[in-house]
Design a protein around this nucleic acid. Sequence first.
DNA 1: AAATTCTCCTGAAGGC
DNA 2: TGCCTTCAGGAGAATT
Length: 270
Amino acid sequence: MPELPEVETTCAGIGPHIVGQVLRAVDVRDGRLRWPIPENLAHQVVGHRVRCVRRRGKYVLIEFAHGGLIGHLGMTGSMRVVTTQEPPSYHDHFDLSFDQCLVRYRDPRRFGSLLWQDSPVESHALLAHLGPEPLTDDFNVDVLETACKGRKQAIKTLIMDSKRVVGVGNIYANEALYMAGINPHRQAGRVSRARLQKLVMAIKEVLADAIEQGGTTLRNFVDSEGNPGYFKQQLRVYGRAGKPCLTCSKPLKETRLGQRSTVYCGACQR
DNA sequence: AAATTCTCCTGAAGGC
DNA sequence: TGCCTTCAGGAGAATT
């Protein structure tokens, strides 16, 4: 599933092909995504020139002078550049058509989305209340401590809340909490500042590492059209329930937290 | 206001 | 081999 690194790599991958190009058509074969693709979307954007492609949280923003397309890859979405004559397959739900190429969106489970927002793009309701980007200085111990103060919510649920910080999905929340030695169930308000500092650093580290792998992940994905692949051998806890903790060798526990699989070491994480 | 639960969807994996 | 059930999950919406 696309995490922040895949979204980052997606933007980097399609940007060079379409920035400066005029969008010629939006071909929607199946607009039933998480939200239906608006019927009038093509009219608002066809004939305009792409100014930039960038990421905000896990949203892909394709911006024009007068607004922008807001894309989300959901669970199983991907955007890739293909040649104009390549025929679409079953789950290829829409194409953004340019003179020399297409940006083709594929999404078997259709949890993704494609929306339009007039300038400024970030005024859209989906973007307006997002928290800071985890890899910038805007996400720091002061911000996290304020967010946690007095909260009874589990720390894992809090760091996965995009209003607090964007881009921390289930896999990386599990990994970061393990790296910081914090039990995912611990109440957010009961984590010391020193340990929140560790958590901030762990989130930045795990995402930065994943972005380095993201390129590789996406290349594999495009080449094989198979699993996105997470280089699971590098994950310390996610997907390793029952297996020995890499620090103390005790078996890792698995629980549910907010309907999400949560794996941790009962000994190393307090 | 804060926290939890529900919801969308379909491929993969497990059970028999 | 094949059918059935269960699970996975981003994140907004609904509910408590």
